[in-house]
Design a protein around this nucleic acid. Structure first.
Lengths: 226, 226
DNA sequence: TGCGGTCGTTGCGCTAGAGCAAGTTCGGCG
DNA sequence: CGCCGAACTTGCTCTAGCGCAACGACCGCA
């Protein structure tokens, strides 16, 4: 389980190494293949999950069947935060987009850990507050920006989050056009057309299931033009 | 300060009366006139506020100047929840829509109260989780429903929240058309046209600065049609 | 009781972007 | 190595709804 030591989990920031060992020991390791539903909107929140590797799509379904993606979580992130509130339910669907390697704690376990460690409580509050801020930001964009701007901002956000080691271009964004469309509330057609326009402008390269971004500066300009 | 006893604050649910007295005593009472900015997006989160009377608009501003309203808070609700996270900032604007009567706690005070009372921690977690869920719901609607449906849902939500004593129709919804437009991410023109269409259908009555809803059933139908 | 500003009303033109249809390309699996 | 389904591509049509403009109604204030 040394994998958990390599990854920097924000939810466990500031926890003493000894305590961390105990916490990690109380978790179960899960392996999932691609396109597996981890939990559904409305399910009782039985577990808190921490992603070791892979990507998980967090989304809701509308009555008409269209899906709205709120977040794509990756290594170091925690999902199913509803589990920290007793007797609550998940409020969205969580589905793997790749093969995943995950840690899972039972909700009661998490709740007692929360009582035990003040830092953990702090971190959870902070994470919840941040999610709220992210959602507000997305809502603002959806209400006030056009598709081109939302797409650019979405790509910038992705690269910001994953600017791990590779700061130099080109950067690969492993998202399908369909995913991008669901993420910004647009049709896949429009997303496709915009990406190709940008490709023609030399901003990026469109590939199957992913993008290759060449020019972050100009992309930022598209994201920020008032 | 007996006003605070009459109103049911969800954030203080389950607190013992004696403790509640102490908590109330640590607050300051504030009176504000209409259209006063309580705090701005980006300001340090210095206070937690509880509304005794009046309405407060919680919104963000986009670069182009358009505003997106997330919530309209009323008596019994708490705003500025960012103050429970140390050294954080508000993430939106809060402006009074009416004359307001408010309780205010300093952030450090709130934070020590949080450490002192486990119930308070629970309640705050629950509130944050609920706001998150509300925002997700709004985001889903904005991404997947048309303006007519969003408007209907928004009105239904309002009536649901304020179905205090008056369960019988007609119900007055004290929102200007402009407010409704900002709330659902539409133009005031479209909102106006829809409201008049519904007035022609006998669903409601359009008035200056407010609405009179006659037929909640048919409004619900408009909100829920897939 | 009149005046100014805010809010509401409505006609009109226009465009961003949805969605259908009919390909094409790719990757994975047998 | 060939097949199938999923993802992408692109032309086309069509409409929801934005926003201008111009006017009308109401409210608070002096």
């Amino acid at each position: 389980m040394n994998t958990s030591e390599i990854i920097h989990y924000r939810i466990f920031a500031g926890i003493e190494p000894d305590d961390m060992t105990a916490i990690t020991r109380s978790a179960v390791v899960i392996y999932l293949k691609r396109d597996t539903l981890l939990f559904a909107d409305g399910d009782p929140a039985t577990h808190l999950y921490a992603i070791l590797s892979g990507q998980i799509r967090l989304y809701k379904l509308a009555a008409n069947g269209r899906q709205s993606v709120f977040r794509i979580a990756g290594p170091g992130e925690v999902i199913g935060l509803s589990a920290i509130v007793p007797h609550s339910s998940y409020t969205l669907y969580a589905q793997t987009m790749t093969r995943c390697h995950i840690l899972a704690w039972l909700a009661p376990t998490v709740q007692s850990l929360m009582e035990q460690y003040a830092i953990l409580r702090q971190n959870c509050l902070q994470l919840l507050a941040e999610y709220r801020e992210d959602l507000q930001e997305q809502l603002l964009e959806l209400a006030t920006s056009d598709v081109e701007q939302r797409l650019a901002k979405s790509l910038m956000r992705w690269m910001q989050r994953h600017s791990d080691t590779t700061n130099r271009e080109p950067i690969t964004v492993p998202l399908a056009q369909r995913d991008l469309a669901d993420l910004i509330g647009a049709s896949p057609y429009t997303v496709n057309r915009l990406l190709h326009k940008w490709q023609a402008e030399g901003l990026l390269q469109v590939q199957h299931g992913c993008l290759l971004v060449y020019d972050r500066q100009r992309l930022r300009a598209k994201a920020e033009r008032a």
